[in-house]
Design a protein around this nucleic acid. Structure first.
Lengths: 196, 196
DNA sequence: ACATATGGGAACGCTGCGTTCATATATAGA
DNA sequence: TCTATATATGAACGCAGCGTTCCCATATGT
């Protein structure tokens, strides 16, 4: 299991190093959780030097970010025929990714780090913009079907959905798959009685 | 400004020590932000020893929590006659507290710490339960006025509101007081078109 | 008087961050 | 072919902050 240390391959970056570092980081994450993921531990496990590590990932937060980004967005954009069904499928997949995959569990700590590191905050913002595209698609399809209330602010609606998902993540209250349909139902339910 | 060091007052806890520590922590927070709030810095400023500090606040997170809890819940429970108005007033006050008061700014870091420290997570949960009582009151009054949609799950609605506020806090996108009414409007707006 | 619990001061070990240095290696360009 | 360049490494360093431990002084209350 212990491969030999890599050497420079000349005046260009060694791709094997990046691979080894990210793999090591993911392994450590899976085995010891986030607090085990220190720069020293990653360097040791990847058989890279801290100098190399810091050359390419200037801070621990940046490394975390790279690990999270490397976890491919394998989330589907389902098409079940109704907004409710689509949301249950999509949000359900997202929650599963967050709670079950070691890389997914990183997000909550990235959010945490972002509270102290503006760079991480910016990076997360960019990541969000990309990922929310999926939610937007679901909403657009629902609009095309005439499901949505006229005059609905789609951007605000996106935020509403994502905010709830974050809240679940950050308060350790992610609903079970069995409960999710009800939760989505309540999310879509109107608060106010129809104007009379 | 530099008071003399306190001594033991015998076989009972010196209240002046607790006061001095919390005051020092708040001062440091106001001057240098959260990253300046280290146990060493607080001890030095409060002219207490680290031993004393750790006797009463066993970890940095517990100290943060004490500082946040000490910031009185001065949030009003307004009664403007409509749910929309009440929410604008209440959530607006909450957002102002979070963004302007040094102690308020602690919350985001407590949320961050909670992601690694179960004890903080539990404490925050308890704090939440207490604070949300206010939102519940607003909703209950709205229900009494017949404003709410029949069959609305009030608890889910509470969560929806709080989740959005958290999201604003954690993504550095707290709306301005001028924008808040629109945001609340969109929060209350129905997503789906009336069933036909 | 005496056990008790507090508060202070100082030092310690530990971990982890981020840096620096000298050295070896392979590339790219002339 | 020769040379400048950029890479990777290992080892060591400084630094900060956490949490702990000893020793001692002090006031309590019994």
């Amino acid at each position: 299991m212990t491969q030999p240390s890599r050497a420079s391959i000349g005046a260009k970056r060694n791709p094997a190093t990046e691979t080894a570092v990210l793999a090591a980081a993911q392994d450590i994450l899976a085995e010891g959780g986030i607090q085990a993921l220190t720069m020293e531990a990653v360097a040791k496990r990847a058989r890279a030097s801290k100098a190399t590590l810091y050359r390419w990932w200037p801070s621990r937060a940046r490394l975390l970010l790279a690990v999270y980004s490397a976890s491919k967005d394998s989330l589907p954009t389902p098409d079940t025929g109704s907004l409710h069904g689509d949301l249950v499928a999509y949000v359900g997949a997202m929650l599963r990714h967050w709670s079950e995959m070691p890389e997914g569990r990183v997000l909550r700590h990235l959010i945490a780090e972002a509270q102290s590191e503006p760079a991480v905050m910016e990076a997360l913002k960019a990541q969000r913009a990309a990922r929310w595209h999926h939610i937007r698609q679901l909403l657009d399809r629902a609009a095309a079907r005439g499901e949505l209330a006229p005059g609905l602010d789609v951007a605000a609606c996106e935020t509403r959905i994502a905010a709830l998902a974050w809240f679940w993540l950050l308060t350790d209250t992610i609903p079970t798959p069995a409960d999710l349909p009800t939760e989505i139902d309540q999310l879509l339910a109107p608060v106010l009685a129809p104007a009379g």
